[in-house]
Write a protein that binds this DNA or RNA. Structure first.
Length: 498
RNA sequence: GCCCCGAUAGUAUAGCGGCUAGUAUUGUGGAUUGUGGCUCCAUAGAGGCAGGUUCGAAUCUUGCUCGGGGCACCA
C-alpha cells in the first residue's frame, strides 16, 4: 500500500470514528440529552461550525485562542472551528433576541473542536450539550439548569451517589476577599483553585527526598492526591504506597501539609497572616448546602457578603423544590472560569473514582451578551461534554450490549415471490424496523445472515404459503415457526415486539 | 507544549537478527434448490511511516505519525 495513504488512513489525532457499536453507546447519552432537554421545555437551535476568529477572541482567553483550530477562507479572513458554543449563542441572542419572549430556554448539541493534547476524558473534537436560560437573573434559573443536568446524568446511567454537583458563588468569593481588603483577588483565587496541587507537590518532593525515582514519585503523589480529594479523611484503598515506605503517615498529615503549603503560597503574594488565615478557613467551608449556609452565617462579614450569602440561601430553597438538593454540595474553594462567570458557578464531578475531570460545568454569565453590544441580558447555562460521561459509564460497564436496529428480517425464498415479499416489507416498515433481503440468496444463507446480525424475527416468504395468502414467521431465538395469514401479520408481530 | 507506555491481517495474537511472517476468528465464494448459527473446502487479508546499524531487520536504533496514560492548560 502507498505509504502516504497509509498514514492518512490513520486519521487525525484526537478525532474519532464512531462505528455502529460505538455510536450506540454515545446514543444513550445523546438521547438522554435530547429527551431531558425536551422534557424541560428547551428549544433546539444550531449554529455554524465555523465562526470568525474574532468572535472567539473577544471573550475567551488567550489560551483558548491558541488551542483553537484555525483556517483562512478564500478572502483570507481568519476563521475558527468553534471551540465552544457560548460565543455563537451570544451572537444569535445579540442579533435577534427581541423576537423571543424571555426567558429564553434553548439547548444545542454541537460538535466542538480544540487542538489540544488528548488524554482521558478529553479529545480534540467532542459533542457538548449546551443548555441556557437567557433573560432572567433569578436564582431559580440556576437551580433549574442544575436540575436539568442532574436529570440528564441520571438518565444516561449514573446513580445519585455516583456524582455530585459542587456549587460556589463567584460573587460571594469576591465580595469576601474585598471585605478582607485583599487586592490581588485573581491571584488568590488561582491559588485556592489549585489547592490540591500544593499537597501533591509536597508529597512528590518528599518522596524524592526519600529516594524514590522522580517519575515514580509523580505518579504516586498524583494517586494519593486524587484519592484524598475524593474521599477526605476516610481510610480506604490507599495505593501501594504504604507497603513501599512509611507514607501511611501522610494520611494524618495531609490536612496539615495542605494548610502549610497553601498558606505559604498566599503569604508569598503579600497577604498578611491574618488575611491568609481567614481566606484559608473560608476555603475549608464545604459540604451539604444547609450546613454551609449555617457556617457562612456565623462569619463576621460586611453587607455585600451578607447579600451574597442570602443569594446562596435562596438558591438552596429552589434546589430543594426541584429535588436535587441531595446531589448538591456547596464548596467555597471552587473557582472555575476566572473571568467568564459573574455569579453562581457549578460543576458536576464523578464520585466513582473513574475520571478526575468534571462531567459538566456551568454558571451565570450576566455580562457576556452585553459585552457583545447586546444590552443587559443576564444568562446562565451549562456545558455537558459527552466524553467524560461516556468514559465513566464505560468503566462502570453501564452500556447495554449492542443490538441491531432491525426487528424483522424478510426473506424471500425464490425470485418469483420477490414482488410479494417486497410489498410485505414495505407494509411492515410502517410499524417496524425491517431488513429486506432482495438479493436472491438461498434461504439457509439468509437464516445465517439474520442470525449473525441478531435480528429476532424472520418472515419467510415462499410460494407454498403464498398460495394460501400466508407467510412463515420464525422466532430466531427459539426456532419456533408458525404460518400466519398476511392480513394477520401485523397483529401477530405486535404481540411479539412490544 | 512536555513526560511515560505502546503499535504485526477487520479483530485477537505468535515470532524477538535468517520471513517464503504462523495461528484463531472475521470477510468473500462454495459443499447445502423451503429452514441458519456445527462441519468441510476454496479464497482474501498484516509488521504505522521514514532513516540508521547489519551480509541479512517484523526483531536492534533514531525521528515522525497514530493510540493509551499523566503534567501543564482548559471546558
Amino acid at each position: 500500500m502507498d505509504s502516504e495513504l497509509k498514514e492518512i488512513l490513520k486519521g487525525i489525532k484526537g478525532n474519532r470514528d464512531f462505528y455502529p457499536e460505538d455510536y450506540a453507546e454515545y446514543k444513550v447519552i445523546f438521547d438522554a440529552m435530547h429527551n431531558i432537554s425536551k422534557q424541560f421545555g428547551y428549544e433546539l437551535y444550531e449554529g455554524p461550525i465555523l465562526e470568525y476568529a474574532k468572535l472567539i477572541e473577544y471573550k475567551s482567553g488567550q489560551n483558548l485562542a491558541t488551542e483553537t483550530y484555525r483556517l483562512l477562507d478564500r478572502e483570507k479572513r481568519k476563521l475558527v472551528l468553534r471551540p465552544e458554543m457560548t460565543p455563537s449563542l451570544a451572537r444569535l441572542i445579540v442579533n435577534q433576541h427581541q423576537r423571543y419572549p424571555k426567558p429564553i430556554r434553548w439547548y444545542c448539541l454541537p460538535r466542538v473542536f480544540r487542538d489540544e493534547t488528548p488524554q482521558r476524558g478529553r479529545v480534540k473534537e467532542h459533542f457538548q450539550l449546551n443548555a441556557d436560560i437567557i433573560g432572567v437573573n433569578h436564582p431559580a434559573a440556576d437551580a433549574e439548569i442544575i436540575a436539568l443536568t442532574t436529570s440528564i446524568i441520571k438518565t444516561a446511567g449514573l446513580k445519585d451517589e455516583e456524582f455530585v454537583c459542587v456549587i460556589n458563588s463567584r460573587e460571594l468569593l469576591q465580595s469576601y476577599l474585598e471585605f478582607l481588603d485583599i487586592k490581588k483577588k485573581e491571584e488568590v483565587i488561582r491559588i485556592i483553585d489549585a489547592k490540591g496541587k500544593y499537597v501533591q507537590n509536597a508529597i512528590e518532593a518528599d518522596l524524592i527526598k526519600k529516594g524514590f525515582k522522580s517519575s515514580e514519585s509523580k505518579v504516586l503523589a498524583q494517586q494519593f492526591r486524587t484519592i484524598w480529594q475524593q474521599d477526605p479523611r476516610k481510610e480506604k484503598n490507599y495505593p501501594d504506597i504504604e507497603s513501599k515506605s512509611d507514607l501511611a503517615q501522610y494520611l494524618d498529615k495531609l490536612m496539615i501539609i495542605e494548610e502549610k503549603e497553601v498558606k505559604a503560597a498566599l503569604e508569598s503574594i503579600g497577604l498578611s497572616p491574618e488575611q491568609t488565615s481567614k481566606v484559608y478557613d473560608f476555603t475549608l467551608i464545604k459540604g451539604i448546602p444547609q450546613d454551609v449556609i449555617v457556617a457562612l452565617k456565623s462569619l463576621e462579614v460586611g453587607d455585600r457578603v451578607k447579600l451574597a450569602i442570602e443569594n446562596m440561601e435562596e438558591l438552596l430553597t429552589y434546589l430543594e423544590s426541584f429535588d436535587v438538593i441531595k446531589n448538591c454540595e456547596f464548596d467555597m474553594s471552587i473557582a472555575r472560569g476566572l473571568d467568564y462567570y459573574t455569579g453562581v458557578v457549578y460543576e458536576f464531578l464523578d464520585r466513582t473514582g473513574s475520571v478526575a475531570r468534571a462531567i459538566a460545568g456551568g454558571g451565570r454569565y450576566d455580562q457576556l451578551v452585553e459585552s457583545f453590544g447586546g444590552g443587559k441580558i443576564p444568562a446562565t447555562g451549562i456545558g455537558i461534554g459527552e466524553t467524560v460521561l461516556h468514559s465513566i459509564l464505560k468503566k462502570l460497564n453501564r452500556f447495554p450490549s449492542y443490538k441491531h436496529p432491525a426487528e424483522i428480517y424478510v426473506a424471500a425464498i425464490s425470485e418469483d415471490v420477490m414482488p410479494a415479499a417486497a410489498k410485505i416489507a414495505r407494509d411492515l416498515r410502517k410499524d417496524f424496523s425491517v431488513v429486506f433481503n432482495p438479493f436472491g440468496w438461498k434461504l439457509s444463507r439468509q437464516l445465517e445472515d439474520a442470525g449473525n446480525r441478531n435480528i429476532p424475527n424472520m418472515i419467510i416468504i415462499g410460494k407454498r404459503d403464498l398460495d394460501e395468502d400466508k407467510v412463515t414467521l420464525r422466532d430466531m431465538k427459539s426456532g419456533e415457526q408458525i404460518t400466519v395469514l398476511i392480513s394477520k401479520l401485523k397483529e401477530e408481530l405486535d404481540a411479539k415486539i412490544s
